[in-house]
Simulated scan of single mutants.
Amino acid sequence: MLWDADQKEVVCNESYDIIELFNSGLNEISSNPGLDLSPPPLKKKMDEWNQVIYPNINNGVYRCGFAQSQEAYDSAVNELFNTLDMVDEHLGSSRYLCGDALTLADVCLFTTLIRFDIVYNVLFKCTKKKLIEYQNLHGYMRDIYQIPKVAATCNLGAIMDGYYKMLFPLNPSNIRPAIPSGCEHEMLSKPHNRESVSWVERDVDALIT
């Protein structure tokens, strides 16, 4: 949610619209106005990825965690991990989702990946695999985490508090588990070696099918 403190009103409640606003709508006060994570030549490819990532991964983890029936959970968890498997395969030949350039599509995916093993795998029952078991996805997450100033935005303890201590129906004990060793800063800071990944252009629809 984007809140206007002066007007005391909600400016925007849609996460993708908010990151698009931060990408280009505040350039007059930005310290790096030349940075564009939504370049026009990649817009179509970004939209294609977002149409897959949002329902199956970003929202998919919530569909698992808040499923009201076994059937709903089974459907959501299968779609989630089928999509993670597909993205992991794609990232074996592409440094980022749309090639060699970081885009807003990567930002959207990263926000779920950084929470995956510390929250969604446990609290939301996304248990088929841990993210650390995905060689390409985990390296990709570390690649983005190690971009200057990104790690400073990833307060894992605060993230865990926001879930384990706020979602009472899912965690009535209010106990926050320990951060898994694979998710600690030292692990996330290990070399990812993704600079050498060779980009092979692929059609997103072909990957899904």
Rank of each mutant, 00 (worst) to 15 (best):
I118C: 13
M141V: 14
D205W: 02
L156V: 10
K8Q: 15
L26T: 13
E20K: 11
D203S: 13
K190P: 01
S30V: 09
L156P: 03
L156K: 12
L207I: 11
E184R: 12
L109Y: 11
I159D: 06
E186C: 08
F66D: 08
Y164P: 13
G182P: 02
D203Q: 09
Q70C: 07
S198G: 01
L123H: 06
V122Q: 14
V150K: 09
E195N: 10
S94Y: 03
L156S: 09
V52S: 11
N32H: 04
A101Q: 01
V200F: 05
N78Q: 15
E186A: 15
N56S: 10
I53S: 04
L188F: 11
P177I: 08
Q70R: 13
G65M: 08
M86E: 01
A152E: 14
V197S: 03
N59R: 15
K190C: 09
L137I: 00
V197A: 09
K8G: 07
S189M: 12
V11Q: 08
N59L: 15
A101G: 00
N82F: 06
A206T: 14
L123G: 07
I19G: 02
W199D: 04
Y145L: 02
I53F: 07
N59I: 10
H185P: 07
E14S: 09
V77G: 10
I179F: 10
A158P: 05
W199P: 04
K128H: 10
V87N: 02
L137A: 00
T127K: 04
N121H: 15
V10H: 13
V10P: 14
S31I: 14
E14K: 04
L42P: 02
G99W: 03
Y140W: 05
R194I: 06
S94I: 03
L123F: 09
S198L: 02
N50Y: 11
T83P: 09
L170W: 11
E14M: 04
T103I: 00
M141T: 15
D203P: 05
I53W: 05
M1Y: 13
L109M: 13
V11D: 04
L91T: 03
Q135S: 02
Q146W: 07
R95V: 04
I18K: 06
P191F: 02
A105H: 06
L137K: 00
E28L: 14
T83R: 10
M187T: 15
L91C: 00
N32E: 02
P148G: 13
K149N: 11
